[in-house]
């Protein structure tokens, strides 16, 4: 079991629905977000390329955040999902510093928060809130070990990239290009 996400940049319009859906689903306090939109523009008018990306924790295979956590609050659960146990987190912020994706933040309660791939929803057979809400249907979620899963199929059939491959974290969010 290896959960992963593929996001089609050819369809994403950068609307931020994934962001607000995550916030309401997970009761993320106002002013904080577990996912966000990045926009990149290349070229000179009118020869331009524009890309929107919905970004979040990459649930890496090689996890600097888990390695640097002094208390074991950051940990990996089944399917490779990286999670934080609030009761164990002392809010030292070592994981925030170590993450090449800037995917973690200190919550108002003092512990470090981040994307969970909505593991509470996966347990009920549902997709993460961001995937379920996306009005462009640009996100695919599933098990990479299952060759018939949606995410396996699009990664097999489309060109893709990952973010900050040079960091060597083996990220599990794939951007279809």
């Amino acid at each position: 079991m290896r959960y992963a996400m593929a996001i089609d940049t050819l369809k994403c319009v950068g609307c931020s629905d994934c962001v607000v859906a995550c916030q309401t689903e997970n009761n993320v306090p106002h002013g904080y977000a577990r996912d966000w939109i990045t926009e990149t523009v290349d070229g000179v008018y009118p020869s331009l390329e524009l890309e929107f990306r919905s970004e979040r924790c990459n649930h890496c295979d090689n996890t600097p955040c888990v390695r640097t956590c002094p208390t074991g609050a950051s940990h990996i659960i089944e399917g490779g999902i990286v999670k934080v146990t609030p009761g164990k987190c002392i809010g030292c912020g070592a994981c925030i510093q170590s993450c090449p994706y800037d995917a973690r933040f200190s919550s108002p309660e003092g512990w470090v928060d981040k994307c969970t791939f909505c593991d509470h929803r996966i347990a009920n057979g549902q997709d993460p809130a961001c995937v379920e809400v996306c009005p462009t249907h640009c996100m695919y979620f599933g098990d990479l070990d299952d060759k018939n899963s949606n995410v396996s199929k699009v990664i097999a059939n489309r060109k893709w990239k990952v973010l900050a491959p040079e960091a060597g974290t083996d990220p599990q969010i794939f951007y279809l290009i």
Partner: peptide, 21 residues
């Protein structure tokens, strides 16, 4: 708590936009 699109709805096809969410 939250608002989720109705699958049978031809306006939303079960998915709200950020404003609706």
């Amino acid at each position: 708590w939250k608002i989720i699109g109705n699958e049978d709805d031809p306006h939303s096809y079960g998915r709200f936009c950020p404003r609706g969410t």
